[in-house]
Design a protein around this nucleic acid. Structure first.
Lengths: 134, 134
DNA sequence: CCTTGACATAGAGCATACTCTATAGTGTAT
DNA sequence: ATACACTATAGAGTATGCTCTATGTCAAGG
């Protein structure tokens, strides 16, 4: 039921090196070892690592992840810090989405201005249809 | 009317080092120099640099930016490449927005599950209201 | 028995994107 | 004249996040 590092690596699509790296960086605390000292990943571990991967994909720094984990170690005394951190995080995401959409619109405008030859491609863009502000 | 490196640095909120760096990387072609060899930035240059900053904010690699510029040097023969590149770019943005929103929802769910103490903060999040899929 | 393969640790190496330092030239103000 | 503010180039240094290498242990299969 628990998985080896290779199995997790394969199911999550991440290198074993990266898995060890995340652990070394303190992102995967309390990880189990078998009698040979080999890592054993529980379902919970796997789910948490999936979360890490997701957060890394949107460029949440490893230090931030470690910070939140640190707070969770003594939850009673750190409610305010966690609240602040989540608030920061939501603002981070908000900025991220907004700048992306802004960037999208700016690019579309520039292409219309300077590169009319390839404008046609824009008309097929789902992302433009969904998020364009014009 | 044309600006010095310091003026551009100040209006765009980017270091003079970065400005020189972008130029060295080939992102700012045909930049004018005065009789002393000092850089002179036109309005057009400034606008383009603003675009660069925007694209860098969403982590478009410098190499990609250089690639597109390269195509613009001989527009007639590279229509297809430019089209492909814009297509890639739009997909890139699309993925970016989608993974960000996914990540947002996943995080919100996890917080609800594991950290009920700080859930209240979520109810005030505009970004959640705007982009939550639930 | 010995090779193979998966595991371990420790640490070096690499890519990206700046950022900073060293050195030097030039124009203006005191 | 001399200090300062700004410019320049070239190249070293830094931060981040992996990725790869070296070296070694252990268990199972031929």
């Amino acid at each position: 039921m628990s998985k080896t590092i290779k199995q997790v690596s394969e199911t999550l699509g991440i290198s074993v090196h990266a898995l060890r790296y995340y652990e070394k960086e303190g992102l995967i605390p309390f990880l189990d070892r078998d009698l040979h000292g080999n890592r054993r990943y529980s379902e919970n571990d796997e789910e948490w690592i999936r979360m890490i991967i997701c957060l890394r994909e949107i460029d949440m720094p490893i230090a931030k992840l470690r910070e939140y984990l640190g707070y969770l170690k003594s939850p009673e005394e750190t409610t305010e810090q966690r609240r602040a951190l989540i608030n920061d995080y939501m603002n981070f995401i908000d900025r991220k989405i907004n700048t992306t959409i802004e960037c999208l619109n700016l690019t579309a405008k520039k292409i219309e201005q300077y590169d009319p030859e390839v404008v046609d491609i824009l008309t097929e863009c789902n992302v433009l249809k969904r998020f364009s502000m014009q």
